[in-house]
Design a protein around this nucleic acid. Structure first.
Lengths: 178, 178
DNA sequence: ACAACCATGTAAGTAGTTACATGATTTA
DNA sequence: TAAATCATGTAACTACTTACATGGTTGT
């Protein structure tokens, strides 16, 4: 369960309100750990109850936003969690289930949906590449920047994989459905 | 939500009991959609209540096993679901959360755990490759076999990706932690 | 006949999703 | 000043996880 630690990380990088976090989860952090605003607000409440973060009084934010920042015990918890060994999570890939189902009940018109998904993956890849150019253009970066770049590279590698895979699938369907 | 359709697919391929399915989910199907035996038994009950599968009377199985088989309405439901457009599921990759956290609170001793995970991915890859040799050695396969092979290839591509990624991560940690 | 294991399940809890609600602030 | 949007939530539900239970079967 990584949501609390993803939130603490985000708050260490930049103290934020729930809605700030929600929009950051739509951009950078959420590329690897999706969360809705309801999850975020609920989890922020838990983090505060656990004494890992505190919310600044609203006047300091000059509005209705409730800005949270990480407390020392929250930072300690994050360090503990990061240092812990963890196994890769079990896979859940609905598209593979669907391909396997198609193999036994098909042919259905899968190709058009694969084409549509291929486009989505190409868009995501382009997005990642533009972030890469914008944020990681220069050489000789710090350890921190190198690791952040590495995470982005994982995204690039994954999207590249699914593009390649989609093309392979289309090729099979084109020849096998004749 | 793909578990019911993963189960129907598995039962179309081969009528099975709950425990048979549980062991198949530990091998082939579960490589892409993990499920525990509790989930499987519960879902089989729902599928039967929905009239999509039926359980054969226990005497036909010659034991205490309850063997399920797919009914025509279950097959129709599977076809409907397969033909439906679906977006890729939102990503949830705890390791990327962890790397990003490490970037802000590190260095911790990440390298040893990455090395351990690298070994796990290499083992999985070897497993996939041996299944490939065993089940998909010959040429000129049927459409069905080609699609089943394709699913396995996705697994091979993914494990290869994580091996490559782990090696890249180790390289960064080796130079940046000096 | 007793222990170990197998097959099926129940119960309780956590995580994530979907739909809706409320008051504050900005915009037309 | 009314409508639209923003920020923060509540409620209800579904999916998944973890721990335990029960009775049948197999092996010694």
């Amino acid at each position: 369960m990584s949501l609390p630690h993803a939130l603490i990380t985000a708050l260490v990088e930049q103290p934020s309100s729930g809605s700030d976090l929600a929009s950051r989860f739509d951009r950078s952090i959420g590329y690897f750990w999706h969360a809705t605003h309801q999850q975020i607000y609920r989890e922020l409440g838990r983090l505060e109850a656990a004494g890992w973060v505190e919310s600044l009084p609203p006047e300091s934010g000059r509005g209705r936003k409730k800005v949270y920042q990480v407390l020392p015990s929250g930072l300690a918890e994050l360090q503990r969690w990061v240092a812990e060994d963890q196994d890769p999570l079990p896979q859940r890939n609905a598209f593979m289930v669907r391909l396997r189902a198609e193999a036994v009940v098909g042919p259905t018109g899968l190709a058009s949906d694969i084409q549509r998904r291929l486009t989505l993956h190409q868009q995501k890849l382009a997005e990642y590449r533009s972030i890469e150019v914008r944020d990681f253009g220069r050489e000789g970066a710090s350890r921190k920047a190198q690791l952040q770049h590495l995470v982005l590279e994982a995204g690039i590698m994954q999207e590249t994989l699914w593009i390649e895979f989609s093309e392979k699938a289309l090729k099979i369907l084109a020849t096998a459905d004749l």
